[in-house]
Design a protein around this nucleic acid. Structure first.
Lengths: 124, 124
DNA sequence: TCGTGGTTACAAAAAGGTGCGTAATTTACT
DNA sequence: AGTAAATTACGCACCTTTTTGTAACCACGA
């Protein structure tokens, strides 16, 4: 992982939220508790390795909580922590800012920005 | 540059703001107009290649405006656009969120989070 | 044998750094 | 006076580092 250049909170958050996946995962997790395989179905283009890595990162950042239910085919559930939930509106605000600034005419829903996932499914 | 996975504004903003530099550059630019060499002095660890690349990206995103004054030694000035200024508080909010969640005891300034740049200066 | 939620090793791709070249004018030195 | 060097904001080519993808493997129990 890239080391920090300054000791400022902004750079620290960005280190966690940077990249394609963190905000997407947060988006799906705000819908409620999800299992590993659920998240894979939600965004089919992430590799399982990336998914585990990103989930760990979000976990370490205190955004996501991992609950492991022991047993047979092994069940693990992921959900947003309270802090994670508090983060959601801030991210949404960024999305709305983007919508209003890069206003190329017609926009869709005002609040609750919704990712339209394509299906470039990569089987493995 | 990585292509988008979904067509959602959040992913689009994050594509612009992701990485170590965008937020740092915005931070320094909110202090006012800066020249290329000023920004290099502000954060000595960025290479000129990265700086131009990141500035272009911010320019394309409508966050930063580039003004070129002809003549030689050629002078160029960078400043936040109105949209860029509107973005600043949103980014600051993320910093504050981080501060309040990862609260490891003592914190510094409440608002106006300030990067403390180190001086691993690389001359070139 | 399959499915779950991983880990590990290796390969590919992307990001980033380094150094050189460039322009026209000023300043520095001889 | 004449030459040389420095200046500013890059672009380009090459090379290294980091990130991400791929595939194989593991455990367990149904």
């Amino acid at each position: 992982m890239k080391s920090l250049v300054s000791r400022c909170p902004i750079e620290e958050v960005m280190q966690v939220l940077s990249g394609r996946w963190p905000t997407l995962l947060i988006y799906y997790l705000k819908q409620g508790t999800k299992r590993f395989s659920d998240l894979r179905r939600d965004n089919p283009t992430i590799s399982h390795k990336m998914l585990t890595l990103e989930l760990r990162k979000l976990e370490d950042a205190g955004i996501v909580e991992r609950t492991e239910f022991g047993g047979y085919p092994l069940r693990v559930e992921y959900q947003l922590t309270p802090a994670g939930h508090r983060l959601v509106p801030l991210i949404d605000a960024l999305g709305e800012w983007w919508d209003t600034t890069s206003d190329t005419g017609a926009q869709s829903s005002p609040a609750d920005t919704e990712p339209v996932i394509p299906n470039t499914v990569s089987r493995d």
